[in-house]
Design a protein around this nucleic acid. Structure first.
Ligand SMILES: [Mn+2]
Ligand SMILES: [Mn+2]
Ligand SMILES: [Zn+2]
Ligand SMILES: [Zn+2]
Lengths: 137, 137
DNA sequence: TTTCCCACTAAGAATGATTCTCATCAAAGA
DNA sequence: TCTTTGATGAGAATCATTCTTAGTGGGAAA
Protein backbone atom coordinates (compact mmCIF):
# COMPACT_ATOMS: atom_id res chain seq x y z
CA UNK A 1 0.00 0.00 0.00
CA UNK A 2 1.26 3.50 -0.80
CA UNK A 3 1.46 6.44 1.56
CA UNK A 4 -1.73 7.99 0.24
CA UNK A 5 -3.62 4.77 0.84
CA UNK A 6 -2.38 4.59 4.43
CA UNK A 7 -3.14 8.27 4.98
CA UNK A 8 -6.69 7.67 3.81
CA UNK A 9 -7.26 4.81 6.20
CA UNK A 10 -5.83 6.69 9.17
CA UNK A 11 -7.75 9.91 8.52
CA UNK A 12 -10.96 7.99 7.80
CA UNK A 13 -10.51 6.51 11.27
CA UNK A 14 -10.75 10.10 12.57
CA UNK A 15 -7.07 10.24 13.43
CA UNK A 16 -4.43 12.78 12.67
CA UNK A 17 -1.89 11.52 10.15
CA UNK A 18 1.62 11.43 11.60
CA UNK A 19 4.85 9.80 10.58
CA UNK A 20 4.77 7.30 13.45
CA UNK A 21 1.20 6.30 12.66
CA UNK A 22 2.14 5.87 9.03
CA UNK A 23 5.04 3.49 9.65
CA UNK A 24 3.15 1.54 12.31
CA UNK A 25 0.10 1.07 10.13
CA UNK A 26 2.33 0.11 7.24
CA UNK A 27 4.06 -2.56 9.35
CA UNK A 28 0.70 -4.10 10.25
CA UNK A 29 -0.54 -3.98 6.67
CA UNK A 30 2.61 -5.66 5.36
CA UNK A 31 2.85 -8.29 8.10
CA UNK A 32 1.85 -11.76 7.03
CA UNK A 33 1.76 -13.18 10.52
CA UNK A 34 0.00 -11.51 13.43
CA UNK A 35 2.66 -9.34 14.97
CA UNK A 36 3.00 -8.33 18.59
CA UNK A 37 3.76 -4.70 19.51
CA UNK A 38 7.36 -5.76 20.03
CA UNK A 39 7.47 -7.28 16.53
CA UNK A 40 6.21 -4.04 15.03
CA UNK A 41 8.78 -2.10 17.03
CA UNK A 42 11.64 -4.34 15.85
CA UNK A 43 10.39 -4.06 12.30
CA UNK A 44 10.35 -0.28 12.14
CA UNK A 45 13.06 0.90 14.50
CA UNK A 46 16.02 0.65 12.15
CA UNK A 47 14.37 3.19 9.84
CA UNK A 48 12.93 5.16 12.76
CA UNK A 49 15.53 5.09 15.51
CA UNK A 50 13.82 7.65 17.70
CA UNK A 51 10.47 5.86 17.89
CA UNK A 52 9.49 4.61 21.30
CA UNK A 53 8.02 1.22 22.20
CA UNK A 54 5.38 3.00 24.26
CA UNK A 55 4.29 4.89 21.16
CA UNK A 56 3.91 1.61 19.29
CA UNK A 57 1.66 0.23 22.02
CA UNK A 58 -0.32 3.46 22.24
CA UNK A 59 -0.70 3.82 18.50
CA UNK A 60 -1.79 0.22 17.96
CA UNK A 61 -4.39 0.67 20.67
CA UNK A 62 -5.54 3.91 19.05
CA UNK A 63 -5.92 2.06 15.75
CA UNK A 64 -8.00 -0.65 17.42
CA UNK A 65 -10.27 1.93 19.05
CA UNK A 66 -10.62 3.71 15.73
CA UNK A 67 -11.59 0.39 14.19
CA UNK A 68 -8.89 0.30 11.52
CA UNK A 69 -7.12 -2.80 12.90
CA UNK A 70 -8.10 -5.68 15.18
CA UNK A 71 -6.40 -7.20 18.17
CA UNK A 72 -6.64 -10.46 20.04
CA UNK A 73 -4.73 -12.38 22.69
CA UNK A 74 -2.78 -15.46 21.64
CA UNK A 75 -2.58 -18.62 23.70
CA UNK A 76 0.54 -17.38 25.46
CA UNK A 77 -1.36 -14.32 26.66
CA UNK A 78 0.41 -11.92 24.31
CA UNK A 79 -1.46 -9.30 22.29
CA UNK A 80 -1.51 -9.81 18.54
CA UNK A 81 -2.55 -7.27 15.92
CA UNK A 82 -4.31 -7.94 12.67
CA UNK A 83 -4.85 -5.62 9.71
CA UNK A 84 -7.67 -7.77 8.37
CA UNK A 85 -10.99 -6.40 9.56
CA UNK A 86 -13.37 -9.04 8.24
CA UNK A 87 -14.23 -11.91 10.56
CA UNK A 88 -11.97 -14.89 10.06
CA UNK A 89 -10.50 -17.77 12.02
CA UNK A 90 -6.99 -18.52 13.14
CA UNK A 91 -4.78 -21.54 12.94
CA UNK A 92 -2.42 -21.86 15.89
CA UNK A 93 0.64 -23.98 15.22
CA UNK A 94 1.72 -25.73 18.40
CA UNK A 95 5.20 -26.30 16.99
CA UNK A 96 6.15 -22.88 15.66
CA UNK A 97 3.64 -20.69 17.56
CA UNK A 98 2.75 -19.10 14.24
CA UNK A 99 -0.80 -17.91 13.74
CA UNK A 100 -2.20 -18.01 10.22
CA UNK A 101 -5.52 -16.96 8.81
CA UNK A 102 -8.27 -19.29 7.81
CA UNK A 103 -11.24 -17.94 5.94
CA UNK A 104 -14.02 -20.10 4.61
CA UNK A 105 -17.38 -18.69 3.59
CA UNK A 106 -19.11 -22.07 3.78
CA UNK A 107 -18.02 -22.54 7.37
CA UNK A 108 -19.20 -19.08 8.34
CA UNK A 109 -22.56 -19.68 6.69
CA UNK A 110 -22.83 -22.97 8.53
CA UNK A 111 -22.19 -21.33 11.89
CA UNK A 112 -24.51 -18.41 11.25
CA UNK A 113 -27.28 -20.80 10.29
CA UNK A 114 -26.65 -22.98 13.33
CA UNK A 115 -26.77 -20.12 15.83
CA UNK A 116 -29.80 -18.62 14.11
CA UNK A 117 -31.68 -21.80 14.82
CA UNK A 118 -30.08 -22.62 18.16
CA UNK A 119 -30.10 -19.44 20.13
CA UNK A 120 -28.21 -19.63 23.41
CA UNK A 121 -30.53 -18.76 26.26
CA UNK A 122 -29.83 -15.52 28.11
CA UNK A 123 -26.94 -14.71 25.82
CA UNK A 124 -26.75 -12.22 22.96
CA UNK A 125 -24.00 -13.23 20.53
CA UNK A 126 -21.81 -10.49 19.07
CA UNK A 127 -19.13 -12.49 17.35
CA UNK A 128 -18.10 -16.07 16.83
CA UNK A 129 -14.60 -17.17 15.99
CA UNK A 130 -13.01 -20.53 15.64
CA UNK A 131 -9.69 -21.39 17.16
CA UNK A 132 -7.95 -24.25 15.42
CA UNK A 133 -4.90 -25.69 17.13
CA UNK A 134 -2.59 -28.14 15.48
CA UNK A 135 0.60 -28.50 13.50
CA UNK A 136 1.86 -27.01 10.31
CA UNK A 137 3.13 -29.78 8.07
CA UNK B 1 -16.77 -34.46 45.52
CA UNK B 2 -15.46 -36.12 48.68
CA UNK B 3 -11.84 -36.35 49.78
CA UNK B 4 -11.47 -39.91 48.54
CA UNK B 5 -12.70 -38.92 45.08
CA UNK B 6 -10.19 -36.08 44.91
CA UNK B 7 -7.41 -38.31 46.19
CA UNK B 8 -8.20 -40.80 43.45
CA UNK B 9 -7.99 -38.21 40.71
CA UNK B 10 -4.72 -36.78 42.00
CA UNK B 11 -3.00 -40.10 42.47
CA UNK B 12 -4.29 -41.39 39.14
CA UNK B 13 -2.54 -38.38 37.65
CA UNK B 14 0.68 -39.82 39.06
CA UNK B 15 0.95 -37.18 41.77
CA UNK B 16 1.51 -37.44 45.47
CA UNK B 17 -1.57 -36.55 47.47
CA UNK B 18 -1.00 -33.54 49.73
CA UNK B 19 -3.25 -31.18 51.63
CA UNK B 20 -2.50 -28.25 49.33
CA UNK B 21 -3.24 -30.31 46.23
CA UNK B 22 -6.46 -31.49 47.79
CA UNK B 23 -7.84 -28.03 48.55
CA UNK B 24 -6.67 -26.61 45.20
CA UNK B 25 -8.23 -29.42 43.20
CA UNK B 26 -11.39 -29.10 45.24
CA UNK B 27 -11.61 -25.37 44.49
CA UNK B 28 -11.37 -26.05 40.76
CA UNK B 29 -13.91 -28.85 40.90
CA UNK B 30 -16.39 -26.69 42.81
CA UNK B 31 -15.90 -23.54 40.73
CA UNK B 32 -18.71 -22.76 38.36
CA UNK B 33 -16.84 -20.09 36.45
CA UNK B 34 -13.30 -20.52 35.16
CA UNK B 35 -11.14 -19.28 37.99
CA UNK B 36 -7.73 -17.67 37.75
CA UNK B 37 -4.92 -18.75 40.08
CA UNK B 38 -5.68 -15.65 42.14
CA UNK B 39 -9.35 -16.66 42.40
CA UNK B 40 -8.39 -20.09 43.67
CA UNK B 41 -6.01 -18.51 46.17
CA UNK B 42 -8.70 -16.14 47.48
CA UNK B 43 -11.13 -19.02 47.70
CA UNK B 44 -8.97 -21.27 49.84
CA UNK B 45 -6.78 -18.97 51.90
CA UNK B 46 -9.21 -18.31 54.75
CA UNK B 47 -9.24 -22.02 55.57
CA UNK B 48 -5.56 -22.43 54.69
CA UNK B 49 -3.81 -19.26 55.89
CA UNK B 50 -0.29 -20.56 55.33
CA UNK B 51 -0.77 -21.50 51.68
CA UNK B 52 1.28 -19.51 49.21
CA UNK B 53 0.14 -18.00 45.92
CA UNK B 54 3.21 -19.48 44.26
CA UNK B 55 2.11 -22.92 45.37
CA UNK B 56 -1.30 -22.34 43.80
CA UNK B 57 0.34 -21.44 40.47
CA UNK B 58 2.75 -24.35 40.66
CA UNK B 59 0.10 -26.86 41.66
CA UNK B 60 -2.36 -25.78 38.97
CA UNK B 61 0.39 -26.12 36.41
CA UNK B 62 1.27 -29.56 37.78
CA UNK B 63 -2.38 -30.57 37.42
CA UNK B 64 -2.44 -29.38 33.81
CA UNK B 65 0.72 -31.34 33.00
CA UNK B 66 -0.75 -34.40 34.68
CA UNK B 67 -3.85 -33.98 32.52
CA UNK B 68 -6.36 -33.72 35.35
CA UNK B 69 -7.42 -30.11 34.61
CA UNK B 70 -7.25 -27.83 31.57
CA UNK B 71 -6.06 -24.28 31.17
CA UNK B 72 -6.56 -21.54 28.63
CA UNK B 73 -5.91 -17.83 28.28
CA UNK B 74 -8.87 -15.46 28.41
CA UNK B 75 -9.21 -12.39 26.22
CA UNK B 76 -7.50 -10.23 28.84
CA UNK B 77 -4.44 -12.47 28.67
CA UNK B 78 -5.07 -14.06 32.06
CA UNK B 79 -4.82 -17.80 32.63
CA UNK B 80 -8.04 -19.61 33.42
CA UNK B 81 -8.40 -23.12 34.78
CA UNK B 82 -11.11 -25.59 34.01
CA UNK B 83 -11.95 -28.86 35.74
CA UNK B 84 -13.92 -30.08 32.73
CA UNK B 85 -11.71 -32.22 30.54
CA UNK B 86 -14.04 -32.87 27.61
CA UNK B 87 -13.86 -30.47 24.68
CA UNK B 88 -16.38 -27.66 24.94
CA UNK B 89 -16.81 -24.05 23.93
CA UNK B 90 -16.84 -20.86 25.95
CA UNK B 91 -19.11 -17.87 26.11
CA UNK B 92 -17.30 -14.64 26.93
CA UNK B 93 -19.47 -11.92 28.38
CA UNK B 94 -18.16 -8.52 27.37
CA UNK B 95 -20.05 -6.87 30.23
CA UNK B 96 -19.15 -9.00 33.21
CA UNK B 97 -16.02 -10.77 31.85
CA UNK B 98 -17.56 -14.05 32.98
CA UNK B 99 -16.80 -17.14 30.95
CA UNK B 100 -19.43 -19.84 30.84
CA UNK B 101 -19.46 -23.23 29.22
CA UNK B 102 -21.33 -24.07 26.07
CA UNK B 103 -21.63 -27.65 25.00
CA UNK B 104 -23.69 -28.75 22.03
CA UNK B 105 -23.29 -32.16 20.43
CA UNK B 106 -24.99 -31.10 17.20
CA UNK B 107 -22.54 -28.23 16.75
CA UNK B 108 -19.57 -30.49 17.39
CA UNK B 109 -20.85 -33.02 14.89
CA UNK B 110 -21.35 -30.24 12.37
CA UNK B 111 -17.77 -29.03 12.77
CA UNK B 112 -16.26 -32.50 12.69
CA UNK B 113 -18.14 -33.23 9.49
CA UNK B 114 -17.10 -29.94 7.94
CA UNK B 115 -13.39 -30.37 8.66
CA UNK B 116 -13.51 -33.98 7.55
CA UNK B 117 -14.63 -32.84 4.13
CA UNK B 118 -12.65 -29.61 4.01
CA UNK B 119 -9.15 -30.44 5.16
CA UNK B 120 -6.88 -27.46 5.59
CA UNK B 121 -3.84 -27.81 3.40
CA UNK B 122 -0.51 -28.26 5.15
CA UNK B 123 -2.18 -28.26 8.56
CA UNK B 124 -2.95 -31.15 10.89
CA UNK B 125 -5.80 -30.22 13.22
CA UNK B 126 -5.55 -31.29 16.86
CA UNK B 127 -8.45 -29.44 18.41
CA UNK B 128 -11.14 -27.00 17.44
CA UNK B 129 -12.86 -24.69 19.85
CA UNK B 130 -15.37 -21.97 19.38
CA UNK B 131 -15.08 -18.63 21.09
CA UNK B 132 -18.40 -16.85 21.42
CA UNK B 133 -18.31 -13.24 22.54
CA UNK B 134 -21.36 -11.28 23.52
CA UNK B 135 -23.52 -10.23 26.42
CA UNK B 136 -25.31 -12.06 29.15
CA UNK B 137 -28.90 -10.85 29.28
C1' DT C 1 12.91 -46.43 65.30
C1' DT C 2 16.20 -43.40 63.36
C1' DT C 3 18.25 -41.60 59.40
C1' DC C 4 18.25 -40.06 54.90
C1' DC C 5 16.31 -38.39 50.90
C1' DC C 6 13.69 -35.85 47.85
C1' DA C 7 9.57 -34.00 46.27
C1' DC C 8 6.68 -30.27 48.12
C1' DT C 9 6.05 -25.84 49.92
C1' DA C 10 6.54 -20.75 51.43
C1' DA C 11 8.42 -16.47 50.68
C1' DG C 12 9.81 -13.23 48.02
C1' DA C 13 12.76 -11.72 44.06
C1' DA C 14 12.82 -11.51 39.09
C1' DT C 15 10.69 -11.30 34.64
C1' DG C 16 8.00 -9.85 30.65
C1' DA C 17 4.25 -7.60 28.61
C1' DT C 18 1.62 -3.72 29.02
C1' DT C 19 0.07 0.65 30.89
C1' DC C 20 0.80 5.02 33.05
C1' DT C 21 2.98 9.51 34.04
C1' DC C 22 4.88 13.40 32.69
C1' DA C 23 7.75 16.57 30.26
C1' DT C 24 8.40 18.08 25.61
C1' DC C 25 6.99 18.82 20.88
C1' DA C 26 4.39 20.01 16.79
C1' DA C 27 0.72 21.05 14.12
C1' DA C 28 -3.57 23.78 13.66
C1' DG C 29 -6.31 27.33 14.80
C1' DA C 30 -7.37 31.94 16.91
C1' DT D 1 2.50 35.29 16.65
C1' DC D 2 0.34 33.12 20.66
C1' DT D 3 -2.45 29.45 22.31
C1' DT D 4 -4.32 25.14 22.58
C1' DT D 5 -4.44 20.35 22.17
C1' DG D 6 -3.09 16.14 20.92
C1' DA D 7 1.10 13.21 19.87
C1' DT D 8 5.44 11.49 21.25
C1' DG D 9 9.60 9.69 23.97
C1' DA D 10 11.48 8.18 28.13
C1' DG D 11 11.15 5.69 31.78
C1' DA D 12 8.59 4.33 36.02
C1' DA D 13 4.87 1.50 37.61
C1' DT D 14 1.77 -2.39 37.38
C1' DC D 15 0.19 -7.04 37.06
C1' DA D 16 0.26 -11.83 36.20
C1' DT D 17 3.39 -15.30 36.20
C1' DT D 18 7.80 -17.71 36.85
C1' DC D 19 11.98 -18.49 39.23
C1' DT D 20 15.14 -19.07 43.16
C1' DT D 21 16.20 -20.59 47.37
C1' DA D 22 15.83 -22.28 51.79
C1' DG D 23 13.17 -25.00 54.84
C1' DT D 24 9.75 -29.15 55.88
C1' DG D 25 7.92 -33.46 56.26
C1' DG D 26 6.60 -38.03 55.02
C1' DG D 27 8.00 -42.10 53.51
C1' DA D 28 11.91 -45.58 51.82
C1' DA D 29 15.95 -47.66 53.65
C1' DA D 30 18.90 -49.14 57.16
MN1 LIG E 1 -15.57 -24.81 33.99
MN1 LIG F 1 0.86 -10.76 30.86
ZN1 LIG G 1 -5.91 -12.83 11.12
ZN1 LIG H 1 -15.04 -24.62 30.32
Amino acid sequence: MNIEGIKNIITKGGLKFTHQRMVIYNAIAEAKNHPTAEHVFEQIKSDNPSISLGTVYKTLDTFVTAGIIQKFVDNKGVMRFDGILEAHSHLYCKKTNEISDYKNAELEALLTKFFDKNQIEDFDIDEISIVIKGQKL
